[in-house]
């Protein structure tokens, strides 16, 4: 793919054309790297199809290419965070008890780490995956609380929201390392440090990559606008949900591994209003208890990251 679709220009209006051209050029090189994710993209695309068009056997077949992923998937399916008390014996059994969508997202989680051949991590990989998986879990729990139908989509959006950080490690390693260093030294937010020193942030590079995947547009919006959901041209409730979940993770020890000097007022964030307009249930949510419940999940999230991303984290 030589050029990103037109719409990407429109999505990031604040970027100078020269910068977005540079991002696109560098991101297009990612595809030429030898380590294209083997099952990640097909799975991601299956997720786009309506449920009645997805066959269980297609999913099982995809997974059977990779024993490790199959094993990790079973481990994850038996986590209390995914709701099974006993480990299922096969992928098929997992599908029967958890549903196809849930198993698809589990599989995606297991393959996403391998999908990215990050040679030089400029952020601690365990920290990064804990943040991503944590955000995914919070997204799903929050959408459950709001009685939203699409918890699995919210989960995926949470898992992938910071994918631009990996893009930065892969194609702008020097610049991103400096931004990361700047952020942790000044204890400011990562996106602020990126914007100050590079002129763009992981939202821009993440969106550029996701555009090449042809995934659902709302997922791309979540990647592109999760720090400013009110600027998103579409899918604002999903973007707002990711935004709030990201903030919550960052103030509960599932952030980027350094102290961010910030006071987060979620209820008065524009994202809260966006979400509340869509889901009345938000008005009755006990945010403090929700926070404590996230604390309870941290150990389990760390354990899952260890199993699933433990191998993938080591730079090759």
């Amino acid at each position: 793919m030589e050029t990103a679709p037109e719409s990407w220009q429109a999505m990031t209006p604040s970027l100078a054309p020269s910068i977005s051209a540079r991002i696109r050029e560098r991101v297009s090189q990612i595809e030429t790297l030898p380590t294209i994710p083997t099952i990640f993209l097909p799975l991601l695309n299956l997720l786009n199809l309506p449920l009645d068009q997805v066959k269980v056997d297609d999913v099982v077949k995809l997974v059977s290419y990779d024993n490790t992923i199959a094993a990790q998937c079973l481990r994850m399916a038996s986590s209390p965070l995914f709701g099974l008390a006993k480990a299922p014996e096969s992928i098929k059994a997992a599908v029967i008890s958890l549903g196809l969508r849930r198993v698809q997202t589990i599989l995606l989680t297991c393959s996403v780490g391998r999908g990215f051949a990050v040679k030089e991590w400029k952020i601690n990989p365990t920290v990064f995956w804990k943040h991503s998986l944590g955000c995914a879990m919070v997204c799903r729990r929050l959408s459950d609380k709001l009685a939203s139908a699409d918890g699995e989509k919210a989960y995926m959006a949470g898992l992938l929201h910071d994918i631009g950080i990996l893009v930065n490690c892969m194609v702008f390693p020097k610049e991103f390392a400096a931004a990361m260093e700047h952020a942790s030294r000044e204890q400011i937010t990562l996106e602020e440090a990126e914007l100050r020193s590079m002129g763009f942030c992981h939202c821009d590079t993440g969106a550029a990559l996701a555009q090449t995947w042809h995934i659902a547009d709302d997922m791309i919006q979540a990647i592109a606008h999760h720090h400013r959901p009110e600027h998103s041209p579409a899918a604002q409730p999903l973007v707002a949900l990711v935004h709030l979940s990201d903030l919550l993770c960052r103030v509960r020890n599932l952030g980027y591994g350094y102290y961010e000097r910030q006071r987060v007022d979620m209820v008065h964030d524009p994202a809260w209003e966006i979400l509340a307009n869509e889901y009345r249930a938000l008005h009755h949510m006990d945010l403090v208890r929700f926070t404590f419940e996230l604390d309870e999940a941290i150990d389990e999230i760390s354990g899952l990251v260890e199993t699933i991303f433990g191998g993938a984290s080591v730079a090759v």
Binding site: L247, L248, R250, V251, R252, N253, G255, Y259, E260, Q262, R263, V264, D265, M266, V267, H268, D286, L287, V288, R289, T291, F292
Partner: peptide, 30 residues
């Protein structure tokens, strides 16, 4: 937790800590 007992306070999060904030009289954007 305050159990949503008071809606004049803003519930705010800091890293690892929760507090209730009495906003300034003029409510400005942060």
């Amino acid at each position: 937790s305050l159990l949503n007992l008071n809606d004049k306070f803003h519930l705010v999060h800091f890293p690892g800590a929760i507090a209730y904030w009495k906003p300034p009289l003029k409510v400005g954007k942060p």
